[in-house]
């Protein structure tokens, strides 16, 4: 058994808590423990002995740290629960704290309040539609949650239609609920997505990447062909160009973007622009 004990003591790289600062933008695995900057001072090498004496050691300024997706708090320990790259965002004012989260490439979607998603109508039952959004259960959508809809004037929604909408209720204990109007009652781009076009699924990470404000992919794609495109945060993309061929090319480009570096993308786009 002595052998076993030795193995346990000699843990793998990352088995011991690492400082969150040093693993930023690196891959973290479930079960890893991270140390926040203020914990580093106390637990870091050197220990208390080498630190200069502070008069107000007890009253250290408390920093606000927010745990995003993929992280959880257990007492004062910060644990990783998902695989992905660790990201950090500094708070607006001052240093320290901020938001930490794990950026993963998963395909599994969990509804989040306020997310804009593409759903497929799977059933009509009385006053509500059931919409498949790729989550663990279908979302409900009231027939009154469309622009200009009244009890008399029902929206024209059929089973199988694509819906672009927003979550107003999404939590783990309740059925998610969608609407196709904003808080002012306007459609604002939401509603039933028109005929034709192509719907395909990508990872959630790619959607976030494409919708990032500094992402050049969309501008480049827009230069190639005139197109209509809808991104759902649930990993679904609907795209429509003038011809079926162009639609397929666009879908393939967007799918391939995930596994390319910025330089490779530049090459592909310049080659496509020539042809």
């Amino acid at each position: 058994m002595a052998e076993a004990a030795a193995v346990v003591a000699e843990s793998l790289a990352g088995g011991r808590a690492r400082a969150a600062r040093t693993v930023l933008d690196q891959v973290v695995l479930p079960g890893e423990e991270l140390l926040l900057p203020e914990q580093e001072d106390a637990d870091g090498p050197g220990g208390a002995g080498e630190r200069p004496l502070r008069l107000n050691a007890g009253a250290r300024a408390r920093v606000r740290v927010v745990c995003g997706p993929g992280l959880r708090r257990c007492g004062d320990r910060l644990l990783v629960t998902k695989c992905g790259r660790l990201r950090h965002k500094e708070p607006g004012g001052g240093s320290g704290g901020g938001v930490y989260w794990v950026d993963s490439q998963q395909k599994r979607y969990v509804p989040v309040k306020g997310d804009h998603v593409i759903g497929i109508v799977t059933a009509k039952s009385g006053d509500i539609f059931k919409v498949d959004v790729g989550g663990s259960e279908p979302a409900s959508l009231s027939y009154l949650a469309f622009e200009g809809a009244t009890k008399r004037n029902r929206p024209n929604v059929q089973v199988g239609d694509l819906i672009y909408g927003q979550f107003v209720v999404a939590n783990k204990d309740m059925e998610p609920e969608m609407v196709c109007i904003d808080s002012c009652g306007r459609a604002n781009g939401m509603g039933v997505i028109g005929q034709d076009g192509l719907l395909f699924k990508v990872t959630l990470g790619l959607i976030r990447k494409l919708l990032a404000p500094d992402c050049e992919i969309l501008q480049e794609v827009g230069k190639l062909y005139p197109l209509e495109i809808v991104f759902g945060m649930n990993g679904r993309i609907w795209v429509k160009a003038k011809t079926i061929q162009q639609t397929l090319i666009l879908a393939n480009i967007l799918e391939a973007c995930e596994h390319m570096t910025a330089d490779q993308r530049k090459q592909i786009f310049s080659r496509l622009a020539e042809s």
């Binding site: 695995l29 479930p30 079960g31 993929g70 959880r72 644990l79 629960t81 998902k82 695989c83 992905g84 993963s104 998963q106 395909k107 599994r108």
Partner: peptide
């Protein structure tokens, strides 16, 4: 499970 992004205590 890791690929699906299921939250886990450990691997």
């Amino acid at each position: 499970l890791v690929d699906a992004g299921v939250p886990m205590r450990a691997l």
